[in-house]
Write a protein that binds this DNA or RNA. Structure first.
Ligand SMILES: [Zn+2]
Ligand SMILES: [Zn+2]
Ligand SMILES: [Zn+2]
Ligand SMILES: [Zn+2]
Lengths: 151, 151
DNA sequence: AGTAGATATGATACAACATAACATAAATTA
DNA sequence: TAATTTATGTTATGTTGTATCATATCTACT
């Protein structure tokens, strides 16, 4: 999908939720969409500042990322301290539980929707030690198709 | 199990692997065993220094934690930047894949052995996007029995 | 249009987590 | 006892993230 369409989708989702889609936010989201791998807040700060006269502080980038996460346009990968755009940026389906698999070799990250069997397995497994599941986002590590062919 | 027995087990495992179980290592492992929740490297530094005349630097604590992780006596919870002792410290069974569930309210963490159905589900799910699973440790968040009764 | 309230960003400082690099000490082995 | 390996000391620095208070910009209402 063309990037301008993605950005238009994002803008709409923000406005529907009563948030603004400012130039800074658009610019930073665009950089994250174009990224081939997850980026840190500091990566995004640097990227922004390379391409703009007006500079931005990491603090602002963190706030903008928090906003996008709230809007479910961006996900954080907590073990990497990096951020990716939601792979459902362009589609309408309300966002469900997801997890990520990250390639140990090239760093590429794939968002995977949790299927019901997996959800059930996790819930049962967690219940077995007396816990009640609240938040099931997580990251696994592996090799992507490209990288496992090369090795 | 009594703490001295646990430490004795740990010492043996270290020696079998050609590592030393020094006083610092013993002391730090003991603090982590006694902790009710996961601790950070800086927490452990502070704990050590409160109880000992000879002080230790965070750098050393990181090294000691790395050593214990190598020995599979300690696990790191990457999303929390904290560490816990392996719940199988005292038993002999060779360590298999595990994950953790952390109580959002009290911070308590439970180690859970991955059962075969769950492993299979994860493998299938990951394969479906062309990835090959390498490392399946992760953390989930929920409420423990105590905390969900209180609320 | 003017104002009040909400939302967004600027700016500075600092906290928390982690590693690099080089030196010394202590234990093991030859 | 000398050489080698393992463990720790020491200092500096890198990376990630938050707190706080000020200013700007947008929105909605009179
Ligand atoms: Zn998503
Ligand atoms: Zn790859
Ligand atoms: Zn374990
Ligand atoms: Zn709890």
């Amino acid at each position: 999908m063309l990037i301008d369409n993605l950005l238009e989708h994002a803008a709409q989702k923000c406005q529907q939720a009563g948030g603004r889609f400012t130039d800074k936010r658009r610019n930073i989201l665009k950089n994250l969409i174009n990224a081939k791998s997850p980026l840190s807040a500091y990566d995004l700060t640097e990227l922004y500042n390379q391409n703009n006269d007006k500079k931005v502080q990491p603090m602002s980038v963190y706030r903008i990322l928090d906003f996008f996460i709230e809007m479910k346009l961006v996900h954080k990968l907590p073990t990497l301290n990096k951020y990716v755009v939601c792979s459902h940026l362009s589609c309408q389906h309300s966002h469900q539980d997801q997890y990520f698999v990250v390639c140990k070799s090239c760093g590429d990250a794939q968002e995977i929707s949790m299927n019901s069997k997996l959800t059930q397995e996790l819930n049962e497994s967690v219940s077995s030690v007396g816990f009640q599941l609240v938040d099931a986002q997580f990251e696994l590590f592996g090799l992507c198709k490209n990288c496992s062919n090369q090795s």
